[in-house]
């Protein structure tokens, strides 16, 4: 076990966990931030996507020991009141079905727009291909990303 001081959604947090603990489980089990989802545990589905210093990362394979002073943002910290352009676009297009993967989709999409405010279809596919939606809301997700890009 080791103590880690991390910055999550603008707040300083201290956790005492095994160094190999993936950030996903630190968030879910120790910090009660359960918006970040467990889907596969091997970085293949994207349900656990968070931002580490603004970059979309898979928290299920990122050990807490690798975080250092990098800033973590989760779905809970993306905006104050669901008013991030991506969240608004998601609501406008009523994207979710079951909703389980959507936090990860939103985190990947918001990181994409931060880096590339006007992505092409191919660029959206490339950035989003790591996020599986089992319900098949891909068409709406793409529309929502474009709506957010144009807002």
């Amino acid at each position: 076990m080791a103590e880690y001081n991390i910055r999550v959604n603008g707040k300083n947090q201290t956790v005492d966990v095994d160094p190999s603990t993936p950030v996903l489980w630190v968030l879910r089990d120790h910090l009660d931030l359960v918006g970040t989802k467990f889907g596969c545990g091997i970085a293949q589905c994207g349900a656990c996507t968070i931002h580490i210093d603004g970059v979309a990362m898979r928290s299920c394979i990122t050990p807490i020991s690798a975080i250092g002073d990098q800033k973590i943002t989760t779905i809970e910290g993306l905006s104050q009141n669901a008013d991030h352009a991506i969240q608004k676009a998601w609501l406008a297009h009523d994207v979710p079905q079951c909703g389980y993967c959507q936090a990860g989709q939103i985190m990947s999409a918001s990181a994409l727009l931060d880096e590339n405010p006007t992505p092409s279809d191919d660029e959206i596919d490339a950035a989003m291909n790591g996020n599986i939606c089992r319900c098949g809301t891909y068409t709406r997700i793409k529309k929502a990303i474009k709506t957010a890009a144009n807002s």
């Binding site: 359960v34 918006g35 989760t74 669901a82 009523d94 909703g99 959507q102 936090a103």
Partner: peptide, 16 residues
């Protein structure tokens, strides 16, 4: 979707 806002803000909703 009546739970849309909760879904896009990561509120606890699911069994897990």
């Amino acid at each position: 979707n009546v739970e849309g806002k909760k879904i896009v803000t990561g509120k606890p909703l699911f069994g897990l």
